[in-house]
Design a protein around this nucleic acid. Structure first.
Length: 578
DNA sequence: GCCGTTTTCGGCCCGACTGTTTTCAGTCG
């Protein structure tokens, strides 16, 4: 059983933590952390890359780490890790996750008090044993206990974007009600549209921060105030989420928003470029290193312009090549919400939706869609009241009737979201599929099959000439269900060969394909579709999550079926054998 | 441990808040 990318990343993170506790130089530690992060973001399997000798093409992976990855793939572990584990109990690493405990304290707690678990630490803190250590007092003890509580409130590590984003907007709007607050923005990973969010970052422009900070730390949903200063405050909410608020003067907005949007890797790269030009960048300004002269930037555009760059959209600020692209004038023209005028995957009461065909058509029309495809489930998905062939054909009559009734305001087409069964078979035979306007095929069941089996299932659907689109290809549910163990390289190769499209499912619980896979699909010339998979009218409003995900994947409008004029869309489905 | 339009060796982004340190270390983002 070879290790997955995620498991290898986790081992590198553990190695980084242990090296840090040992007091290893910080840059060696950071190398492991950066490598772990890069591995998590890599859409290809490390195994494949290793076989091709391509591991060092991953940024942050050099000769040494490439060898360690190869050893991990072969043996399941690596000498360094084994030696470190023999030296430092793994429980000490758990303690590191407590807010207020870093490597230095974790090491002293372990070595001076023999504490190797969160439970032991809690017991010692409650017994007042921590204050015996130099540099630790009663307040530190209390803070650690609060940190343990905070960790327990935080049940799952990261929060889905679909929960964090509306919450962040709500808090921001509440704070902006104050006259002292001129304007504000959500920043951090929400602004970059990461599918899951660690904490909420908010930024407000003001010359008088105190009342804003006061309103922030006294919000009714605050469980605990973590920091409370004039420029930065942090709280933890009752739901476990941490929210950071920064307040800065309007004249410094550009540098501030850029700084707090990140990513950290992007910021570091940008700052290095500035340093080479004799400029130091922080959240307040640019500073000429020699003269100390300050240059204020009120907009992000100004920040980039001082490097001779165009504006880089936040969704692609991950140091995945956007800085080089900006310098060379080849930034993508990212797709926008306005580019989309069709939705090719939605449900009705015929299967598990809540509205009739006509109601969904009307709701889509009200949201400016020019055409939609009704794709209800097929019969093998019994829990969703999937359609038999007979009901499917009856549905077609109803769809034709509604399409006629809409009188050209919006076109309504007939499709299916056909089940790809556990044995790889499809629910409808070719002669049925031929009668439909559009065919989506999706995996819902037996998602934990071994890689070869589940990949073969999906390839069977991809290779069927009547299937136009694979719905939510990897089958993940954010935050709790991992994607299926698919050989994505094989999936992309097959999709390329068959000319099929792949979906970016806009529902924030799915966001599937994720950005890095969407980017790879586009690079290979595979068309995409961004669909809401709506089961009710309100879910049509989640389309922007799909668009943000696409933007993260450097996707441009021409690659996306939903941006095409109707004639071109119909032509494309025709060419696919209809 | 990575990496190279100043470098294959010697660098590696930058600042806020807290607590207990009488001048700063630790932690965090």
């Amino acid at each position: 059983m070879t290790l997955t990318n995620r498991e290898i990343a986790r081992i590198f993170d553990n190695i980084a933590d242990m090296l840090e506790i040992k007091g290893e130089i910080v840059h060696r530690v950071l190398s492991y952390r950066r490598a772990a992060e890069a591995i998590r973001e890599t859409p290809q399997d490390l195994q494949t890359l290793a076989a091709e000798g391509q591991l060092q093409t991953i940024p942050g992976i050099g000769k040494t780490l490439a060898e360690k990855i190869e050893e991990l793939l072969e043996r399941g572990t690596v000498d360094l890790y084994e030696r470190l584990k023999a030296e430092i109990p793994l429980g000490v690493l758990d303690i590191l996750h407590i807010s207020g405990v870093g490597p230095k304290r974790a090491k002293r707690l372990w070595q001076e008090l023999g504490i190797t678990s969160i439970e032991q630490l809690e017991e010692a803190a409650k017994a007042g044993k921590l204050r015996a250590m130099s540099g630790m007092g009663a307040k530190s003890e209390q803070r650690i206990l609060e940190g343990i509580e905070a960790l327990r409130r935080q049940q799952t590590g990261r929060t889905p974007l679909g929960i964090a984003y509306p919450l962040a907007q709500e808090i921001l709007e509440y704070l902006l009600e104050l006259d002292e607050a001129k304007f504000g923005s959500v920043a951090g990973s929400i602004r970059r549209a990461r599918p899951t969010i660690g904490d909420i970052d908010l930024l407000i422009a003001s010359d008088d921060p105190d009342p804003i900070m006061e309103r922030f730390v006294t919000m009714s949903n605050v469980a605990q105030v973590l920091d409370h200063g004039p420029s930065k405050s942090s709280v933890q909410l009752h739901n476990g989420m941490q929210v950071d608020l920064r307040v800065l003067p309007e004249a410094r907005w550009g540098t501030a928003l850029h700084h707090f949007t990140g990513s950290q890797a992007h910021n570091i790269h940008i700052r290095e470029l500035f340093l080479k030009r004799g400029l130091s960048l922080n959240e307040f300004s640019l500073t000429r290193v020699e003269s100390g002269e300050e240059i204020l930037c009120a907009t992000e555009e100004e920040v980039f312009s001082h490097l001779g760059m165009p504006y880089i959209p936040p969704e692609i600020r991950e140091d995945w090549g956007e800085i080089e692209a900006a310098l060379e004038g080849r930034l993508p023209k990212l797709i926008t919400l306005e580019d989309i005028h069709a939705d090719l995957h939605m449900h009705t009461t015929w299967s598990d939706g809540t509205l009739s065909i006509e109601q969904m058509a009307q709701a889509a029309y009200e949201r400016g869609r020019k055409f939609i495809v009704i794709c209800d489930h097929s019969y093998s998905l019994g829990v969703a009241n999937g359609l038999t062939v007979e009901r499917l054909m009856a549905q077609q009559e109803e769809i034709r009737r509604v399409d006629a009734k809409m009188n050209g305001k919006i076109r309504v087409f007939h499709g299916t979201e056909m089940e790809i069964n556990a044995d790889g078979t499809l629910d409808f035979p070719d002669e049925v599929l031929e009668k439909l306007d559009f065919v989506v095929a999706s995996l819902h069941m037996s998602l934990r099959q071994p890689r070869e089996q589940i990949t073969a299932r999906l390839l069977n659907a991809i290779n069927n000439p009547h299937v136009d689109l694979i719905g939510h290809p990897r089958g993940q549910l954010i935050p709790n269900r991992e994607p299926a163990d698919l050989d994505m390289d094989a999936v992309f190769e097959a999709a390329k060969a068959s000319g099929i499209a792949l979906e970016i499912n806009a529902n924030p619980h799915r966001l599937d394909l994720e950005a890095q896979y969407a980017r790879r699909a586009v690079e290979m010339g595979i068309p995409l579709a961004i669909n809401t998979d709506a089961h009710r009218a309100s879910e049509m409003d989640l389309l922007f999550y799909g668009v943000m995900t696409a933007r993260r994947g450097w996707v441009e409008a021409p690659s996306v079926l939903n941006t095409w004029p109707l004639e071109r869309f119909l032509e494309w489905t025709h060419q696919r054998g209809r």
